[in-house]
Design a binder for these strands. Sequence first.
DNA 1: CACCCGCAGCGCACTGAGTGCCATACGGGA
DNA 2: TCCCGTATGGCACTCAGTGCGCTGCGGGTG
Lengths: 251, 251
Amino acid sequence: MSSSSTAPRRGEKTETAAAKPPMRDALVAAAFQLFLERGYEQTTVDDIVALAGVGRRSFFRYFPSKEDVVFPDHERCLADVTEFLAAGDDADDPVLRVCEAVRLVLRMYTENPTFSVQRYRLTKKVPGLRAYELSVVWRYERAFAEYLRRRLAGRRDGSLRADVIAAAVAAAHNNALRSWLRSDGKGDVGTEMDHALGYVQSAFGASPTPTAPERADDSEDVVVLVSRRGAPLWRVVQEIEATLGRDPEQG
Amino acid sequence: MSSSSTAPRRGEKTETAAAKPPMRDALVAAAFQLFLERGYEQTTVDDIVALAGVGRRSFFRYFPSKEDVVFPDHERCLADVTEFLAAGDDADDPVLRVCEAVRLVLRMYTENPTFSVQRYRLTKKVPGLRAYELSVVWRYERAFAEYLRRRLAGRRDGSLRADVIAAAVAAAHNNALRSWLRSDGKGDVGTEMDHALGYVQSAFGASPTPTAPERADDSEDVVVLVSRRGAPLWRVVQEIEATLGRDPEQG
DNA sequence: CACCCGCAGCGCACTGAGTGCCATACGGGA
DNA sequence: TCCCGTATGGCACTCAGTGCGCTGCGGGTG
């Protein structure tokens, strides 16, 4: 399932090579085998440890709860995302930085398509797992929001913008990811993700292709604005600010 | 706490007036009393039913889980929101409709400020409750997204837009609500919520004050657009479409 | 070599949430 | 008076999760 697909039998000491934590992987493999053939709720932790040939207590040393075994790599991924955001340069666009960060999450899914699809089917059926996945996804969103809050600190509505943009990016990611998972991992997620994130960026006024400004010519910024009938002046101003993604008092 | 603040003693039959489900309210009151004085995890269901003077089995007849007693009115509110969205006219702006719907949720909080603030403090401290609240909030977001998906069906990126806008509206709501809850329920949530939702509307191209177009003069629509250096033509077109909130092939 | 120490896993017993089943009490209608 | 539907209480059970102490192994040190 995840790297080591066969559960090493108990008693084998120091496997030939690979698998740093054999026990952990064995538990994940055993758990998914049972989840897929009987269902999540019909599988007890005792069943899992019996199949894996380990003690019950060991399960809870590797996974704080039964739900955690379904998301064995999110903890690591969240750390990667946090680190990536912390290492960012203050020069680059915050929204783009978050969009790049969310691709790290996508990569975690695409690295193991069959595993991801199986998990998706599982979480779709079991309400408890859906709720748990929600709390997992929420932590990514919090990481995005906190990063944006730092970067937008001092700007008008910085906190609000941070929350909304983080939510929008996460939603776009989930939309593209779910579409890919529904199609059993076939198709080009990357392009779909780019498209979804491009929509978010356009909504929040970041240039859509910054890292590779396709066919950048030498034209200056052109300001055009859409105002509806009856929109008061302050709204027009706010619209410009929102589109520019910055406040008048700050560069 | 919620309507009936004192727990009716067991044995009293058919209270004088008010309180349709006395048992339910008594359980909520007893639960919060204990949660506040000992903490959530330090309170067992047995403690709650003992204080309320009812049988343990009755607790789980009214609340599917211990967590549910913390959010006693969300089920009703979710039904209200769903009904409100279903009853919508096809003429009005979908984004605005969702913004109105989210105000129903806000109202549920503001109807009982002290209760809401207490619950906020509780959920902030207890990770399990935060996770549960997440799944509750997620159901509102799903209701928004499904409504938007229906309304945006056929338009380009309809599903994507629905998800992203729903997430943005929910995030704006949460931002304003949390700010209000942090300040112990003081201050004008309504205005803050309007401001937050206005930001979302401006980002997704809805006119910010549609129900009351303040100072509507007779000016025609003016199209202005912000294009960055190097943005290709298709991006400019997409920007216009996004700002207008509709597709060229549709009205 | 003997000793000690730390780590990884194991076993056991316990708490507490959640469920199924049945008994009971109340109230209304035939 | 009997019957029946509903609301509640009580009991026993499963299972997730925890605390504690035991064991065995490997590695360092005298």
